[in-house]
Amino acid sequence: MAAPDLAAEVEQRVLQLCGEFKQGITYQIIQNDMPTLKLQHIVEIINKLLATSRIDMLKKDDDVLVFKLRDPGSLHRVKGAEPEEQVVYKIIEESGTQGIWAREIRAKSNLHLNTVDKVLRKLESKKLIKSFNSVSAPKKKTYLLYNLEPDRSLTGGAWYSDQHFDSEFVDILNQQCWRFLEQRAVRARQVAGGPIAVRNASYVASKEVLKHISDLGITKVQLSIEDIETILETLVFDGKVERSVASEGAEGVKLYRAVTGLLPTPTLMCIPCGVCPLIKECDDVGNVTPIKCRYMKEWLDLEW
């Protein structure tokens, strides 16, 4: 057994090394640094540091144990926690907003899966961590620190709340963007200088649409340019909006404007036959005939 003050020195040194090597230090590094130290002593010191939560232990991919300096802030958070809890907590903390699966935690901590599960449940109940379902792996729970928001790419971005596609939200945005573009197009018609001037005046850059939507404040969710452009693209496929690209320097800027449809509603859709679900069956014999047709009657007698 090393002398107590010697032990303290070694502890300090180990902590210093951890400070120097932010990515963590291994037994090897400690030994290299203090070659006279016996491995057993190193282990004891490490254990003490772990117990006092001064350092964390992690297992790297190649099964090497690594020790990192523990952030004093988080120390406070998990004060009184079992070592396993600390380990697991640390691992989760490191996964940041990406989150991490239980299986991965087990691999990294080298703890038994059951232990991991127990710890996770405990940490969840302490509201130190939470879980969510990533869209890339909907069946597996992903864990992250309680106060963090999962990365957008995993939750499906702005469009998913609780992994559920929020189509109403999308529809509202769709409408609002359309309204904005339409108003702009109407104003543009007053512009003098010829049809090209009018057309140019009706174009709006996606950036501007984003600002407008953000200003509207209909959602707390922070939308990106890509998000808005996705919405604007759906308007293109609604046949209401046209896209163009202007070159500004190195990149192109996407421009959008509201357009009128080329044709009015075709008459086929103004008669029952156009909307009739039975049109394929309609004949002169049988139950579905023009004479017996219920829709014709309703349409002509206005008795819907």
């Binding site: 759906t234 496929f237 609604d238 046949g239 449809g261 080329l262 044709l263 509603t265 075709p266 086929l268 859709m269 156009g274 909307v275």
Partner: peptide, 28 residues
Amino acid sequence: TMTHTLIDNIVQERFGSKAARIFRLIRK
């Protein structure tokens, strides 16, 4: 172009605007 628009309109009135969006997408 006119006929594409015509058919798109027909899809819209018969199945709704979301269906029309899908139809235009696939057509494109």
